[in-house]
Amino acid sequence: MSVKVLAPGLATTVQDLGRPGYYHVGIPLSGAMDRYALRAANLLVGNDEGAAGLEAVFMGPELEFTEAAIVAVTGADLAPKVDGVVQPAWTAFAVQPGQVLSFDYLKGGARAYIAIAGGVDVPVVLGSRSTYALGALGGFEGRPLKAGDVLPVGASGGAGAGRSVPEPLRRRPGNPAELRVLPGLYWHRLTETAQAGFFADTWKVAPEADRIGYRFRGGQPLSFVPREQPFGAGSDPSNIVDAGYPYGSVQVPGGTEPIVLHRDAVSGGGYFMLGTIISADMDLIGQLQPNTPTRFVEVDMAQALAARAERQAMLVELREALSLA
């Protein structure tokens, strides 16, 4: 079974849950930016949660199916259509041989996840099918899809159409968005005024927002505690001796525009980081459109772990709601 790409969308990539274990040689986690949405799409079509699907950003692809298939689309509000007929989102639907899956325009969120029963069967590279485009690694020939590509699809487990994710389990970002931050890393480099201002200001998602990182602008520039720069750090007060950048860390080059690193993160560099977005909120970032007003909210470790437990509980509910039993 295969799927032919008639039109690729804006930057559609093959993603699964990611490629951990190689960050020390600069190979990032990769995988779906909204992993919850990918899990949901996979469960709807009877796949393993970690099967590879397609991540479409802002605009959907056009895909022609050679054989009958069960498909589900989750995440962003990007309505799927089969031969022009709109299909319900967060719901498994059938596609017949020769039919074309396309998408309406984006009405909310940023990234839609397309799961096909059987999963996209590109080769596994370093334990994952995810695309890391900067390193030309994984996915379909290491790059976003192009018109004419033919995607191999694995054997379906035999799930049928019709199952749907209950409304309360469809996670969408708020507006303004709130991203919870555990201050740390080089937080002490900021003055108290800058620390307070970072959380008080409303920022906006900048147009430079992709799988590597999300940039924000619109808040007051951050000021630094004066110091003599350490050897090897570079002369700008926002510079540090190049260090590893955690997934989710918030760096602010020059103190002006915060950047949250995401699944295809650059793994290290010479800019200070003021803290890290908690794991419970990372999926949401991938659903933020440029210009979305965003507040950063300070939390401590106990709150971060409580939020993580809430997210786990939601996932357990999702699995129960979609179990084949």
Binding site: L182, P246, M273, I277, S279
Partner: peptide, 12 residues
């Protein structure tokens, strides 16, 4: 020592 969110320890 510093925590990088709930999934990392960062050590300078």
């Amino acid at each position: 020592y510093s925590f990088g969110g709930d999934e990392h320890v960062f050590v300078e």
